[in-house]
Computed example of a mutant assay.
Amino acid sequence: MSKTVTVQDIAALAKVSTATVSRTLSHPEKVSEKTRELVMKAVEETGYTVNEAARNLRKKQTDSIVVMLPNIGNEIFSSIVEAIETVCAKNGINVLIADTEKASMSHGRARAYFSKNRVDGIIILDGKLPLDTIPTGDKTPPVVYAGEWNIDANYPIASIDDALGIQLAIKHLSELGHTDIGHIAGPYETTPGKVRTDSFYQVLKQTPNSPKKPWVFDGDFSLKSGKSAAHAWFQLPKNERPTAVMCASDAMAFGFISTLTKLGIHTPRDVSVIGFDNLPVAEYYSPALTTVHQPRDSLGILAAHTLLSLINGSSIKTLKPIEPWLVERDSTAKI
């Protein structure tokens, strides 16, 4: 059985002290180039590897963060997580994933993640996570919200400017001549759902000739709720049907359009439809979906850099929302 190489072996081979070896491996910028070359040559010759667990224990850091999200299978969340992982990998940080909607994720288990002994920081993508899940005090690692957030929480928030997205969508429909614009809303208990719904009403009030009581269907961001909204729209008297519908998610737009197609309603000839997300499938849908693009990669990058800054001792309270943009395709047309 081969002998385990130790710091003492490296020190003897490089003819330096063990303290110099440790300093070279932990903070190479603090030793001379000659010393660094001697130590690294000895490391290469012996095949020595740093015991990361032991080094992290000395630093009182884990070099890990956890991302807490409500559905790991959700394409929006997964793309944000991918961007977070890219930033963290470049900084030597491991990313753990905790699905808050799993049956096994009890309140106590979720709360246990908020310990500096387990992770160095936490990114929360679940705005419905109870605030009492997050302990207060020095033992709680830095926390950043991303995409969704609790309005009563006092932590940095990386977000998309949803209000601007709704404004861009309605402006586009208005320029096409639509005045009777409806909305398939997201769940009001989530911050994106609430902001997009509130913004829809606010923007419509400022839009000339818009109805005082616009048609709004309460959805939940899913294909199924888009299907239900289509049946509700179809059952309206023809002269009361909105000529354009702003959907709070691409999934609801897909469900809405596909169901109406089966009912003999053509998009955009009979009704123009806009989504919100710009999922990869949107440009390949039939018709290709006009939608508000969420820069999900930028959101993940912002959240990751913010958390790493907090871990390193920076103080950050407010982040500027990331601006979305409208992608015009084939699901909208002049009235």
Results as ranks from 00 to 15, higher is better:
26 S>P: 04
39 V>P: 01
78 S>P: 09
37 E>I: 03
67 V>T: 12
72 I>S: 12
74 N>H: 07
44 E>Q: 13
52 E>R: 11
80 I>Y: 06
60 K>L: 11
83 A>F: 12
71 N>Q: 13
88 C>Q: 06
64 S>D: 03
88 C>T: 07
57 L>H: 00
50 V>G: 10
59 K>F: 12
78 S>V: 13
66 V>C: 05
32 S>A: 08
48 Y>D: 00
81 V>D: 09
82 E>H: 12
82 E>F: 08
47 G>K: 13
30 K>W: 04
71 N>G: 04
75 E>G: 11
32 S>R: 01
71 N>C: 04
36 R>I: 02
27 H>D: 15
43 V>N: 07
92 G>R: 03
42 A>L: 01
70 P>K: 00
56 N>R: 04
34 K>R: 10
24 T>P: 00
52 E>D: 03
22 S>D: 06
73 G>F: 11
77 F>V: 05
70 P>Q: 03
84 I>P: 06
52 E>Q: 15
36 R>N: 04
27 H>V: 10
55 R>K: 14
40 M>E: 01
79 S>K: 14
54 A>T: 09
52 E>P: 01
78 S>F: 11
40 M>T: 00
30 K>S: 14
67 V>K: 03
87 V>G: 04
39 V>R: 08
84 I>T: 14
55 R>Y: 02
74 N>K: 00
83 A>V: 09
49 T>Y: 12
79 S>G: 08
94 N>C: 05
61 Q>W: 00
61 Q>A: 02
93 I>W: 08
83 A>L: 10
73 G>T: 15
85 E>H: 04
35 T>G: 03
28 P>I: 05
96 L>M: 13
